[in-house]
Design a protein around this nucleic acid. Structure first.
Lengths: 234, 234
DNA sequence: CAGCGTACTGCACCAAAGGACAATAGCCGG
DNA sequence: CCGGCTATTGTCCTTTGGTGCAGTACGCTG
């Protein structure tokens, strides 16, 4: 199973359906993996491979929504497509609000299903790229020592070496040393880059309570959304 | 009609329903305004007042979805709640994906409706605050001259005065003058603040094609979403 | 035309940042 | 116990950044 090949995971208690959709998906060029229940899926969670999940709503044991909750609870990033024979509007609304890629009803037209799968896979690829970028950024920050992070915090808030030195009660020369080390480790040449990097990484919200960082991709769906008005030339 | 008082706009061709919900809403403490069709609503678009819209799906003339599209096309920010007697799953999924706050079915329990309204109003308030902040930022940038914006672009990319001077083919002293002016107009004391401000405002993506800026609020719905992993202390 | 804002520039001076070279001290794993 | 990493600091020098003061030039507006 090539890890670069997206896999469609299907969770459905109807084994005959599982067989049928397996054939359909393989014919469509997708790798397929079936599960008879949400429990079974959660017991053998796919690793980091790209793909998406198609899940039935009503199943013995945990329902499709339960699976969605469980996956969200462990931050499992695979996009979810609901595919059910007995859905209702409130349920579909709830599922979509919770971030499901789609909510389809059986019987489903192959074209509709494939379109949903393509959207889900595209979304997965986007999120995957996003995570990779973020991970690379965080790795760079990991190389910083705790003291360096502390100094960084003051630097990106625009404080002068002198002020930082005063705050941390050390010599200005020491701050310069830390700064140099920070710039080297983060591979930036200017304060401007430094600030942008820390902003993008969402690191160092060292405020009291819990820390928040940027969210990878907005949890929602891509509505058409016009570009915000930018500055018109004067 | 107090502009600070949120208004619930209801678009429904059923006048008896309109009357009934008007009573219900007023009893619930909301300002109410009714419209018999999407066309009528679009002909008298509410100004900037806070509120939300409750809209029927099937109506003579433009449907609820058409209204949603029309509002999106003009960037009308009021949250939309669908309330219909004859909805189906695909439609509800579509509406939610397009950013509707909720999709309810008639008859609706008062409690459910009020809950949806409260969510919609809360969202509207959030977006409103966001827009205000953004507007304030953009206003500051509007004070910059075109030349200053040009210099700003180079500054936030971390270029030295000397380099900027070379690029724009002017004296370094001139750049210093522009910088000083920029800092003053944007009311910042350091390059760090400057960078953060421009990032936040999403200004100056002066690249060739269309420009993109930050989106006010993510178009989607607030899924629980755990905070991203921040840097653990070393 | 006078006044105003904008762009541009020179000179001088001071403050801040950054690099080079060097050194002391504590902590930790092998 | 030694080597390596980290934190700390010093001195000296160079490069940058920021500001005050001053002056020229251009275009727009009353």
């Amino acid at each position: 199973m090539n890890p670069a090949q997206p896999t469609v995971f299907v969770v459905d208690d109807d084994t005959s359906f599982l067989t049928a959709i397996a054939r359909l998906l393989k014919a469509g060029g997708y790798a397929f993996q079936g599960f008879a229940s949400a429990t079974e899926f959660l017991a053998h969670p796919p690793g980091d491979q790209p793909g998406c999940i198609i899940v039935d709503l009503h199943m013995p044991g945990p329902s499709g929504l339960d699976l969605q909750d469980a996956l969200a609870a462990v931050d499992h990033p695979l996009p979810l497509i609901f595919l059910t024979g007995h859905g209702d509007i409130p349920t579909s609304v709830h599922a979509i609000k919770q971030g499901a890629e789609d909510f389809l009803t059986k019987p489903v037209k192959g074209k509709i299903l494939f379109a949903a799968i393509e959207r889900a896979l595209a979304r997965d690829a986007r999120q995957r790229a996003q995570r990779t970028r973020r991970r690379e950024l965080l790795d760079r920050f990991d190389a910083l020592t705790s003291r360096e992070r502390e100094v960084l915090g003051h630097v990106v808030r625009g404080q002068l070496n002198k002020q930082i030195a005063g705050n941390l009660d050390v010599s200005e020369r020491t701050i310069k040393a830390h700064r140099a080390s920070i710039m080297a480790k983060l591979q930036v040449q200017s304060v401007a880059e430094l600030v942008r990097l820390t902003e993008k990484a969402g690191v160092l919200e060292q405020g009291a309570g819990g820390r928040q960082a940027l969210q990878g991709e907005a949890p929602g769906h891509a509505v058409p959304g016009r570009a915000q008005d930018a500055l018109p030339p004067r």
